[in-house]
Amino acid sequence: MSVLHNMLPLLGQVLLLAVLVTLMLGQWIKNIRIRQGATALLMLLGLLVPVNGLSVAQWLRSVVGDLSVLTLLVFLNILMQRLFNFSLFGASSRKLLLVGVVVIGVMFYPLALGLAAYDPYQLGFLPVFLSVLLISTSLLAWFRNHRDLAVILLLPLVAYNLQMLESTNLWDYLLDPVLLIYALVQTIIYLKFLRNKQNRSAT
């Protein structure tokens, strides 16, 4: 059980490492083949080579904690785009997902950290209500033709049902601070882009 519980979290850390490496390498290495090879090599080193008794992925895990299934999908999408020019989900679905993460995350974390008597994190244990909400949102996305988003919303729930992470709380399959920070940065960049576009069209 603990081996299974360690596999997905370590994969998450390796993906985080790979995303960081890919973003950096993109500045210097223009040849896509070399970039793919370098990323694969650094991923392997990060997973296998011990530094002071722990691999880089394990050190990273000690600091940032386990990443959610949604984060893994978002990071996998970044890697696929950057290294293979292939998207797992469309731009509009990605935008909707990240905005959703920001809206939920900025309300969720202050409450979960004790701002009020209500603790939304509790909803993630025996999560009948949260599951129904996710399934309903997924069905809505499917019938609104965001089919990729509909699938993405179900994957954390399926992973939770299979208990693929250490956590017994569904929130930990959906959200983590790394994803919230990433979503916040992306949303701010997008809002700036929109504002610049508006300014250009006004002049």
Binding site: V128, S131, V132, L134, I135, R147, L154, L157
Partner: peptide, 16 residues
């Protein structure tokens, strides 16, 4: 695929 995923998501929820 979507229906299968829905099943994998819904059945444990119903059970719970």
């Amino acid at each position: 695929v979507y229906v299968l995923l829905l099943g994998a998501a819904i059945v444990p929820v119903l059970y719970r």
